[in-house]
Amino acid sequence: MKEKNKNSGGNGQIEDTVLKGTYKVKVGLAEMLKGGVIMDVVNAEQAKIAEDAGACAVMALERVPADIRRDGGVSRMSDPEMILKIMATVTIPVMAKARIGHFVEAQILESLGVDFIDESEVLTPADETNHIYKHDFKIPFVCGATNLGEALRRIGEGAAMIRTKGEAGTGNVVEAVRHIRTIVGHIKKLSVMGDDELMTEAKTMGAPYELIRWVAKNARLPVPNFSAGGIATPADAALVMQLGAEAVFVGSGIFKSGNPAKRAEAIVKAATHFRDAKILAEVSKGLGEAMVGINIDTLNANELLATRGW
C-alpha cells in the first residue's frame, strides 16, 4: 500500500496516490464514447470532417475496409506519420488498428500516444493462436467479437471495449445484426441460469468462469458493447442500437458514400435519437448515394474477415 500524502494544496508536489493506465481508466474512456459514432478516416482532412460532423472519436487507418477488400494483400498497422497528423488535427480521441496478436504494432501505437487501440480482424492477423495480452498496456483496447464467448475471452485478455465484428467493408449490416443478437441473446440466457449451470456454460463457450459469473449476475458485459461492421445508414446505426449496442463504428460507410459530411452528421444524430422514428426519417432524407455494398453470400469463405480471431 502506497503512503497517502495529505492534499498538497497547490504546492506542485507530485503525490503517489495517482494511478495511470488502470483498467478503470481504460473502461472509463469507453464509457465516455457511449451514444456516439466512431468514424474511420484515412487522412487529416477526413478527420476534420468527422469531428465537425460530431464524431466522438476517429479511427486512423491507411485504407478503409472496403479498399482493403478490393486491394487484397497483407494489411498492416498504418504509417505513424499519418496517425500523428490526425492526432494533431482533431481534439477528439484518436484510435488506430494493430493486427491480431501483433503486440509490437500495439507497442508502437502506444508510444505515439493514440487513445485507443483496435486489435482488428480487418488487418491481416499476425498470430493465428494468440491475441495481444492487453493488460500489459497503459492504453485501452477494443476487440471484435461474434459471440459472447469470444467477447469474454478478449475481456479476459484486457479489452476495455467490445464491438461486434460484423463484416467490415461490405456496407451490409446483416453480420453486425447477427453478432449483436448472438451476444445479447447469450447474455439473456446466462442471466436466467442457475449457479450450478455456469461452469459447463463457461466450458461450452470457452470463456473465463469468473466473467461468465459476472455476466450472469449483472445481465450485461462488464465493458461497453459497441457495434461495427457494415453500418452504412442512420437506420443501420439505430437498428444495432435498438438491439443493444451502446455506440457504433462506421468504417467505409461514410467516406465511400456520395456526401460524407452529411451522412456522417446524420448517423451522429441517429445514434442519439435511435428510438425516435420521426427524427430518423428526418435525418435520412437526401443523403445522396450510400456505398454500394456487397452481399455476404457472394463472398468466398476466405474473404470473410469475421472469422479471424480465436
Binding site: 497517502k4 495529505k6 492534499n7 503525490e15 496516490t17 495517482v18 494511478l19 495511470k20 493506465g21 488502470t22 478503470k24 481508466v25 472509463g28 474512456l29 492526432m87 481534439t91 480521441p93 502506444e110 500516444g113 493514440v114 487513445d115 485507443f116 497503459k138 492504453i139 485501452p140
Partner: peptide, 17 residues
C-alpha cells in the same frame, strides 16, 4: 483547459480530499 492533463495515456485515478 481542455485535455489539461494530456491524452488518454495520462488519464488517471486518484484519492482527493
Amino acid at each position: 483547459e481542455r485535455n489539461g492533463y494530456g491524452r488518454q495515456v495520462d488519464s488517471f485515478e486518484d484519492d482527493i480530499h
